[in-house]
Design a protein around this nucleic acid. Structure first.
Lengths: 225, 225
DNA sequence: GATGTCATGTAATAAGTTACATGATTTG
DNA sequence: CAAATCATGTAACTTATTACATGACATC
C-alpha cells in the first residue's frame, strides 16, 4: 500500500496525476517511481475511499486537468503512516545479482563491459542528485542553514541518495580497479593493449546494446572527490 | 522476469525450492528475496519451459525433496541474461519517502524516533554483511587474493552491499547529528534532558511499536570507523 | 505536417504478498 | 508433548508493467 501513502504525501499541495508523475521523475525520483497507468486508478480509488477530492480545471493547453487534494481523512491517514516505524524493505537489485553470477561466464570482456555500464549509470544518477542539491544551494543564499521543517527533512532524504550514490560510484571504481588488475586493462576495445597498465584509464565505455565497444565517445569528465 | 534469472543463477548447483529460499535469506539476501509461495510455482513453470528438470529425492528428515537443475536451455538463457547490459532499477524506498514527508508532522520526537529506528536497522544489516565477509576471511587463509572467478565476482557484489551499507550508517549518523543539533538531544525519553547536549549519546533507542522509548536496552557497541 | 508535450484513462498481463493446507521429524 | 525445522504446495489478493486508445495544442 505504499504508493497510497507516497501520493498522500505529495498531495500536501494539490496536483493532478500528470503532475505527480512529473514529481516521480524529478524531486521524488530518488525514492519512488510509478507509471501513469498505476497512478490514475490509484487516485480514483483513493477518492472513493474518501482520502481525496478532485476538481476538474481547464488546462492552459491540452485537455482538462483533474486536480486532487487531501481530505481531512486523507491527512489523518498520512499522519498515521508517518508515525509508524518503517520496516526496511529488502532490496531487489538485478544488476548486483548479475554481477554476483557473472563468474559463470568467466569472460573478462563481458565482466568489464557490465561493470563499466553499471558505473556509468551510477555516476549519471549521482550527478543528477548532486545537481538538485546544487540548484537548491544556488537559489537559497544561506543554503544549508535556517531551513524550514519541510526542507530540513527533504534535504536529509536527498542526502541519503547522494551519500549512497557516492558510495556506489566509489565501489564501482574499486571494482574496475580490481578487474583491471586481474585481467589487465583490455576490453572489447580495438586498442592493441600493450600490457603493463596504461596510466589512468577513463571509465567510460559501455555500449548497452552491442558486444564490441569501439573507441570512447560520449565521455563525461569531472568526477567528484 | 528477474526472479527467473536469479533462480537460474542460483541453480548452477542443483537445489530444491526450500534450499533456494534459504539462500535468499543468507548469501543472496543483499540483492534479492522471494517467498516460497512465489518460488515453487516459478520453478514449476520454468521446468515446463524446459529450463529446468527436477528429480524427487528422499529427505533425511521431512518429506521428499524436489531438486531442480539446469538444462542446457536453462544455461543458455542464464548466459544470455548475464551478457545483457543491466538497466538500473529505480528504487522504491518507503522509509526514505517517509523521512522526506516527515516535515509535515513537525514533531521532533517522531522524527528522532524514526531516524533512530532507520539507523539501527541499517546498522544491523551492515553488521550481517560484514560478518559474511569476516567468516570468509577467517576460513580462507589468503583471503582477498587468489580468488577463483566465481568468488571474485561474489566478493565484488558483497562489497557493493557493504560499502552502501556503510554509507547508509554514516548518513544516518549525520542525520541524527543534525536533528539533535536542531532540536537538542531530547526524545520521547524520560530523562529530564538538561539542554546543552549530554556528551556523546548512544544512538540505540527505537521501539518499533510504542511511542515512548524507555531506557536503553539491547544496545550494540562497537561501530565501524 | 511531423513530432513533442499535455492530459486522461482502460485492458491485459506479470510479479509479489498473505493466508491457507498438510504432514513428518527433531529437539527441548 | 510443544515448538521448531523440513518440505511442498494452492488460492486469493494486491501491486506493478506493458500495451492500447484518444485528442488538443505547440513548435520546428
Amino acid at each position: 500500500m505504499s504508493l497510497d501513502h507516497i501520493l498522500l504525501g505529495l498531495l500536501r499541495t494539490p496536483a493532478s496525476g500528470y503532475d505527480l508523475k512529473k514529481e516521480f521523475e524529478s524531486s521524488a525520483a530518488h525514492f519512488w517511481s510509478a507509471h501513469l497507468s498505476q497512478i490514475y486508478p490509484t487516485l480514483k480509488r483513493m477518492e472513493e475511499q474518501g482520502w481525496l477530492t478532485s476538481t476538474t480545471v481547464p488546462s492552459d493547453r491540452g485537455p482538462d486537468r483533474r486536480v486532487y487534494e487531501l481530505t481531512p481523512e486523507g491527512r489523518k491517514e498520512l499522519e498515521s503512516w508517518l508515525r509508524q516505524q518503517p520496516r526496511l524493505d529488502d532490496p531487489r537489485l538485478p544488476h548486483i545479482a548479475q554481477l554476483y553470477f557473472l563468474g559463470e561466464l568467466d569472460d573478462p570482456d563481458t565482466s568489464l563491459r557490465i561493470a563499466r555500464g553499471i558505473r556509468r549509470r551510477y555516476q549519471e544518477r549521482l550527478r543528477a542528485l548532486e545537481a538538485v542539491e546544487q540548484e537548491w544551494a544556488d537559489s537559497d543564499p544561506d543554503y544549508p542553514d535556517e531551513l524550514g521543517v519541510e526542507d530540513f527533512h527533504k534535504l536529509l532524504a536527498l542526502h541519503a541518495g547522494i551519500r549512497v550514490g557516492r558510495a556506489r560510484v566509489a565501489w564501482s571504481d574499486e571494482m574496475l580497479e580490481r578487474m583491471e588488475e586481474r585481467w589487465g586493462a583490455e576490453s572489447g576495445d580495438d586498442s592493441p593493449s600493450s600490457p603493463g597498465r596504461p596510466p589512468e584509464r577513463d571509465r567510460t565505455s559501455d555500449d548497452s546494446r552491442a558486444a564490441g565497444a569501439r573507441h570512447d565517445h560520449d565521455s563525461a569528465p569531472g568526477a567528484t572527490p
